[in-house]
Design a protein around this nucleic acid. Structure first.
Lengths: 119, 119
DNA sequence: CAGGATCCGTGATGATACTG
DNA sequence: CAGTATCATCACGGATCCTG
């Protein structure tokens, strides 16, 4: 852990990282994943829980998450329609990081804000 | 874990999370933070390492990271100029998550790509 | 209820050229 | 070398209206 020839100066396969970041690093994906951590939720439920999200963005983001295999969509043939979304196995593997990030955010956002305004 | 009134259905202080996500969840911040994990680096070094980043975006992103207190900037009064960037203490607290994310990305990006194209 | 379709502003990013 | 300045673009995302 000292100065022993650090060879790994860069993240290998930075392309993959950027690729994935482009998918989950957008405005709503991580928030949705975090919101889904306790189990299935309906469309409207998500819309109310993730405050600030527009119907359009909820639709689009969910669609992409489903395409990427992070979220499962289940539509029940009922009237009125009911659609539930829940994390896939793959999606669940992201949870620890999402939760860590959320906790980090809550722990440090004030500090960051303070830094910003103090210059 | 059955139906016992799950109270924590949403991330508390979602505002803070979104706030922080808006700062570090952009196109380059996490990549830069990950790149700086082994110690100080010069501007040009970063430019070459983080491939694809434009000079402009490198400048802007670094500036924001410095403002937010995640990165320190040290300019040496030399000719030619030398400027080094390195993570602050606060910035270093993000490293575990960044590294986890990078590893997750590398481990799953193929799976995600496969999912995407298989629909 | 759960979306689809459309219109549109604007912020983020890239390219290029210039400078202390 | 390490930036600034300027211009152009384009995807992101919001608002609104419509429908199976």
């Amino acid at each position: 852990m000292t100065h022993i020839t650090r060879k790994i100066t860069r993240i290998p396969e930075g392309g993959a990282v950027r690729e994935v970041l482009d998918r989950i690093g957008d405005k709503w994906s991580l928030l949705l994943i975090g919101t889904l951590r306790d189990g299935p939720m309906r469309f409207g439920e998500l819309e109310q829980t993730v405050e600030g999200i527009s119907q359009r963005m909820l639709t689009l983001t969910l669609k992409r998450l489903v395409e990427d295999g992070l979220v499962d969509r289940t539509a029940y043939a009922e009237v009125p329609p009911r659609v539930e979304y829940e994390l896939t196995e793959l999606g669940r593997t992201l949870l620890p990081m999402v939760i860590s990030l959320a906790e980090w955010a809550m722990a440090h956002h004030e500090e960051i804000n303070a830094n910003r305004t103090s210059r």
